[in-house]
């Protein structure tokens, strides 16, 4: 007898009103207004405090202002479970922004430190999955099997967040392109 696994429930778009259920105060609801899901690592978490910010553009170069992103990462020592966060792109500027700590390398794996990012929005029938690696981890990135699998350095560059400084804060800039020139690498994992 062959045992077949059940079929997974199919995905559907999160739609333009995704904020109501995921970030209700962004939708304008007067509930859960103290929730700060964009702060992934609590204030007392060990490690270097960082921000990750950027925009999302579509195949016409337009800003995607109605997306929700989720971040998932190891902690600063490379331990799991680590930190989860959620942020929306701003309705006007298109910017998303996370506050977290820089993840550490996970012992026993060849992977360079990275954060996982999932994208949900109108027009995405199933979420997109990408990763941000850190520009200041040159040696680890050079040895990373995923960045090697991407191959073309121009494509691998779409997965690297640039380290910048803003008023004494460390900000990694990570712009995402859904389609066309400079299209970000997305994964099936």
């Amino acid at each position: 007898m062959t045992i077949e696994p059940l079929n997974e429930t199919p995905s559907q778009t999160a739609g333009p009103y995704v904020h109501i259920g995921t970030l209700p105060s962004v939708a304008g609801l007067k509930i859960r207004t103290q929730e700060k899901l964009d702060v992934a690592a609590p204030a007392n978490a060990a490690g270097e405090r960082i921000f990750i910010e950027g925009t999302i553009r579509d195949g016409a170069g337009s800003l995607v202002v109605d997306a929700v992103l989720e971040l998932w990462q190891a902690d600063s020592k490379g331990k799991l479970p680590g930190f989860w966060g959620r942020a929306a792109t701003d309705f006007k500027t298109g910017l998303y922004r996370f506050e977290t700590v820089k993840p550490g390398k996970i012992a026993g794996t060849p992977d360079a430190p990275f954060v996982t990012l999932l994208l949900f929005s109108r027009g995405l029938n199933i979420h997109l999955h990408t990763r941000m690696y850190f520009a200041d981890e040159k040696d680890a990135n050079a040895a990373d099997p995923t960045l090697k699998a991407v191959g073309d350095p121009a494509l691998a560059a779409t997965l690297i967040g640039a380290r910048t400084s803003e008023g004494g804060k460390t900000v990694y800039r990570f712009d995402i392109v859904l389609q066309g020139d400079g299209e970000t690498v997305f994964f099936d994992i």
Binding site: T13, D58, L124, N125, E183, F186
Partner: peptide
């Protein structure tokens, strides 16, 4: 909405 928002 799917046409411009998904990778090629």
């Amino acid at each position: 909405s799917t046409v411009l928002r998904n990778p090629q």
